[in-house]
Design a protein around this nucleic acid. Structure first.
Length: 253
DNA sequence: GTTGAGCGTT
């Protein structure tokens, strides 16, 4: 009852998987079980969760024993308000191995080796999917237009998207690096302040709103700028050519 | 205490 997905996939060879979307992050399988079990025989319920935080990802997989019951559950529970949010129930399109399935039915979990090796290249590319989906999990935070559940009808995913699958984790990585840099810089600034505590003992230093900015506190770029020009400008030869642009003998600067 | 596109594990 409560051990759904706790011990891995029990037997999904003859089960129909339903994908439950839009569920709350705190909704557990136990909460979905009584709901789905009322419309059919639920053999297993699995809710993918993040491996880093362990939080639910917001969707669950409900496996029914018969497709008719699953279909009924889809029509009945689809749009039902669960935990204060409307859930979306639909047949799973992809299997555990990232392979397309038919009407939520798992075709086959393990390729039976009847003495006929189909392919010698396993190509565990689904391994990369784990990493990708983990990263994009929080990357996508834009409110996309959720037209309807009907869009899945004409939506066909291509398996040839091995390399064409271009994700855009740029903002994520950029933000991460920027944050780290900022943090480091801020930490250094703080250390500097600690070294000189007699800077501003008065608690009323909030008078300047600009001071609130840790980045613009020291203005490193300003310090770099004047240091480069006048310092190198000290050159008899350079001065001879041009006292304004020592590094370049041109007036284009 | 938080967010919200989409497709799954021992």
């Amino acid at each position: 009852m409560s051990h759904f997905g706790r011990s891995g996939p029990p037997d999904i060879k003859d089960t129909f998987s339903l994908l439950v979307l839009n569920i709350t992050f705190r909704t557990t399988a136990d909460d979905l079980f009584p709901l789905f079990d009322k419309y059919g025989k639920v053999v297993d319920i699995f809710i993918p969760r993040d491996r880093r935080t362990g939080e639910s990802r917001g969707f669950a997989f409900v496996r029914y024993k018969y497709p008719e019951e699953a279909q009924k559950a889809v029509e009945k529970l689809d749009g039902r308000n669960v935990d204060g949010r409307d859930i979306m129930v639909q047949f799973a399109k992809y299997g555990p191995n990232a392979e397309p399935i038919k009407k939520g039915r798992i075709v086959e979990v393990f390729p039976k080796d009847k003495g006929k090796s189909r392919s010698r290249s396993p190509r565990p590319r689904y391994r990369d999917n784990y990493r990708d989906r983990d990263y994009r999990r929080r990357s996508r935070s834009r409110s996309r237009e959720r037209y309807d559940r009907d869009r899945y009808r004409g939506r066909e995913r291509d398996r040839h998207r091995s390399r064409s699958r271009s994700l855009s984790p740029d903002h994520y990585g950029s933000r991460g690096r920027g944050r780290y840099d900022d943090d480091r810089r801020r930490s250094r600034s703080r250390s500097f302040d600690s070294a000189s505590p007699r800077r501003s003992p008065s608690p009323r230093r909030n008078s300047s709103p600009r001071r609130s900015s840790p980045s613009g506190d020291k203005s490193p770029e300003k310090r770099d700028h004047p240091q480069r020009s006048p310092s190198r400008s000290v050159s008899p030869r350079a001065r001879r050519v041009n006292s304004r642009s020592p590094r370049h003998s041109s007036d284009e600067d």
